[in-house]
């Protein structure tokens, strides 16, 4: 939760967002982005939910993919557009939409994607909005498409869960002072993905399991629906 607290803090200075995030996550933010970028191939249609200042989207566009970028923060998108103005050659590959994450089904209606990514944004959403976002993201996948999530997850292990609760209350004051709000790691993710008909095809742990990258695919019977497997 401290990661999110500090993230919210640095969001107030979007220009420095990516650099600061990388320091905060001990370089793993950049590493996670590289792993996500490995999924991107030329000609792919990609949806980046919570694109922020667009570092991932621009890198993906450079690889020849067509990126639809969604973010609810106008200030982040302003920085993103400034970056695009320095790379006009990539502009035709980028489609920026300012909207909420749960509204993508309505805004993008008939569009389908080879790859949908959501990096460090699900924890910012209220539970019901997150559930809906995951469900809609699943429906926006083409056949054979993948939904890749990078986030901080609330541990299922009871001992670790108690430790997280303790840390949460210890960091309550600094977290609140920095963010004026309370953001938690993603809870109930397994239930959300199983209700969305998604299964985890692969997982990669970061920061001693505090963060993880999960590859999700449609399919209720094959694979596993729990992060424990």
């Amino acid at each position: 939760m401290l990661i999110y607290g500090l993230m919210k803090y640095v969001e107030s200075v979007p220009l420095r967002y990516d650099k600061v995030m990388n320091v905060l996550t001990l370089g793993r933010h950049g590493q996670a982005r590289e792993i996500l970028l490995n999924e991107v191939k030329a000609g792919m249609e990609v949806l980046d939910i919570g694109c922020g200042t667009g570092v991932f989207a621009l890198a993906a566009a450079e690889k020849g993919a067509k990126i639809t970028c969604v973010d609810a923060s106008a200030s982040m998108l302003r920085i993103f557009r400034q970056r695009i103005s320095q790379r006009p050659d990539l502009e035709p590959s980028l489609d920026i939409r300012e909207c909420g994450a749960a509204s993508i089904g309505h805004v993008l209606k008939d569009r389908r994607f080879d790859l949908v990514t959501a990096s460090l944004m699900l924890g910012e959403l209220p539970a019901s909005v997150r559930t809906h976002t995951i469900r809609v993201s699943g429906t926006l996948l083409k056949d054979g498409g993948r939904f890749v999530v990078c986030d901080e997850f609330w541990p299922r292990n009871p001992f670790l869960s108690v430790v997280y609760h303790l840390l949460f209350w210890i960091f309550f004051i600094p977290n609140f002072l920095l963010t004026r709000t309370l953001i938690q790691p993603v809870k109930g993710f397994d239930e959300d993905i199983s209700s969305a008909g998604l299964v985890i095809a692969k997982r990669y742990s970061l920061l001693m399991g505090a963060m993880a990258i999960l590859w999700l695919e449609p399919g209720a019977t094959e694979g596993c629906t729990s992060r424990a497997c």
Binding site: A72, A74, G100, A102, S103, S128, T131, H132, V136, T181
Partner: peptide
């Protein structure tokens, strides 16, 4: 401060 806007309301509309 953009913590309550059309995006937040639309998200609630769709989620519910």
């Amino acid at each position: 401060v953009c913590d309550f806007n059309e995006h937040k309301i639309a998200d609630a509309v769709h989620s519910e």
